[in-house]
Amino acid sequence: MAAVVVLVLAAMLAHSLFFSHVVINGRPRERFEWHVIDHYFLSTQILVGLGVTLALTAVAMAGGIVIGVALAVMRLSPNPIVSGSAWLYIWFFRGTPVFVQLLFWFNAYYIFPTFTVGVPFGPAVAHFDVTTWLTPFVAASVGLSLNEGAYMSEIVRAGIISVDEGQTEAAQALGMPRLMALRLIVLPQAMRVIIPPTGNETISMLKTTSLASVVTVRELLFQAQLIYSANYEIIPLLIVASLQYLWVTSLLMVGQYYIERHYARGSARQLPPTPLERLRRGLLIRPGQAGFGRAPFIVGND
């Protein structure tokens, strides 16, 4: 019964999407204007925007992961000043909206017109002119990375804590220093816990980068807005952007599957087959043949 309801609703949705018309100013018009969507989907402006979105996602996630790992390690440090400052960072960046942080970095040159590298309170080594360096893209990258770092650190920390303490102990008994044990023994095992939420974070970041349109980064949504502000095809262009986000998200989900599989090494006796392998096996083994009903893999979790 429920299935019938769902099917009817799906049919109505499909009809509305593809075949229905609206009457505007006395003239009937295709409701969703698929020809407009089709026209802009692969247009240069949109593809350039997509490229910027992907670049921003990659930079922000890379920065976020580096910061996150560093913060997680700091928080687990026995030194209270080190762990305390990491806690403070996380508290601050999780407690303020990322949108506000983006606006802040976009306008940061008001308060930090120059950026100096050198000995603290001593001689300077290099000067940066922030007004020229802090382009919208850089501002958005910095803002998103710093914010993402706070979230990633909690994910990494959960991963580190999930690894049995006996592992650190065995590593220390071999004479490994704390950080080496963390890098060689604990983090690789923590990956199994870290990867799935990191995949979610990446997917979420892909969409969060659309906030950067407000600080004039020429990413996907910005480009769509640029086009519809000229031709008023608002809904079709929002659909174009959405479809672009959708297919990249789908791709990321596939990637996540394979990375998770890679880090399951050593915890499962035999890795489960990939969808491709499953398909191939399904084609090779015909029903009725021996082995068809056998479990295709064993996952050891003793």
């Binding site: 006996g166 102990e169 065995a170 008994a173 095992q189 050593g266």
Partner: peptide
């Protein structure tokens, strides 16, 4: 590093 230790639960590195 000069003292070897063997644990009750082995603590081998599973990866």
């Amino acid at each position: 590093a000069e003292v070897g230790m063997v644990f009750q639960h082995f603590n081998l590195f599973p990866h």
